[in-house]
């Protein structure tokens, strides 16, 4: 008895059988690869958008825009702001300052502002609320009070669009999850079907092996190894698809949207997770089918 030699046999057997089924094995690997890639794209983009949102969400504050047609009198406006409950402090931002701030925030993306009328931005007050007024109901209350001031054109509290956008992101995350589950199930299904074909093609061989005393494990190992190999190749394919896809997209996506193509994890981690998931899918697909076959 020599377990090591035995394992070596099984491995060489599985390599041989993998060579015999090259075409189905390659197709399976590609299926795994593309499902993983699609899932990763969804996941990454929603993580990126989410990161973008939470940076902006921190800046929850209320902005009061001054009506265009009233004479600008920051002092007087400030006095009336102080009388609104919840207002803790405020900063006046003139039209000029607003434009400058916008330019600063879009550093590197200034092209967006080309052709924008510099007078478009109204003067405004950025208001910090007392800490007791920061939940969304109270913010709305303060905003309603501010809106009643005669010189106030519009009240924006960033929560409003942050929350709208955040719910979009949550939807995307949910979509990524649902798509991920479906893709994983579809992939396991496809893998198990290609394995079913392979098992069917080799059913006589498997039957004979069992007749001369091969254990179920002995019969399963080649298929297990095939699943592992298909999974590894599938993982590599998905990584390649993502890397090449990102490279091609980078030049064709407007600059201000490029953050969405960021890779939110270090490349080696992405690589290992992709390969590992590929192996999991490949092995699950193989073993499910072979297991079912051996039960009969």
């Amino acid at each position: 008895m020599s377990g090591g030699a035995n394992l070596l046999y099984m491995l060489s057997d599985s390599l041989r059988c993998a060579r015999e089924n090259v075409m189905t094995a390659v197709l399976t690997a590609f299926t795994i690869g593309f499902s993983l890639a699609i899932f990763a794209i969804f996941l990454f983009v929603s993580i990126n958008l989410n990161g973008f949102i939470s940076t902006w969400g921190d800046k929850t504050h209320v902005v009061v825009y001054v009506k265009d047609n009233v004479a600008s009198d920051p002092e007087k406006f400030g006095e009336s702001l102080k009388r609104v409950p919840g207002v803790n402090s405020f900063t006046y931002i003139s039209r000029e300052a607003a434009l400058k701030e916008l330019r600063d925030e879009l550093k590197g993306h200034e092209s967006i502002l080309e052709g924008v009328d510099t007078n478009l931005l109204p003067a405004s007050f950025e208001i910090k609320l007392g800490s007791a007024y920061r939940d969304s109901d109270r913010v709305r209350g303060v905003a309603d009070n501010l809106k009643r001031l005669p010189w106030v054109d519009e009240v924006q509290y960033s929560r409003e669009w942050v929350e709208k956008f955040a719910s979009l992101i949550r939807f995307m995350e949910l979509a990524a999850l649902v798509i991920g589950v479906f893709l994983a199930a579809a992939t396991v299904f496809i893998v198990s079907n290609t394995v079913r074909l392979a098992v069917y093609a080799r059913r006589e061989e498997i039957e004979i092996m069992r007749l001369i005393g091969a254990s179920d494990t002995y019969v399963k190992v080649p298929f297990f190894m095939e699943g592992v190999m298909q999974g590894v190749v599938g993982g590599l394919i998905s990584f390649a698809v993502l890397a090449v896809g990102r490279y091609l997209m980078l030049d064709n996506v407007p600059q201000y949207f490029r953050f969405a193509l960021d890779v939110p994890f270090p490349a080696p981690a992405v690589f290992s997770v992709l390969v590992l998931s590929g192996v999991l899918m490949g092995v699950a697909g193989s073993l499910v089918t072979v297991g079912r076959f051996l039960k009969t």
């Binding site: 008895m1 020599s2 377990g3 030699a5 035995n6 070596l8 046999y9 092996m209 001369i212 005393g213 091969a214 254990s215 002995y218």
Partner: peptide, 11 residues
Amino acid sequence: ALALKVMGVGP
């Protein structure tokens, strides 16, 4: 050889 292989006999 397969009959021996499945029993784990060395090469």
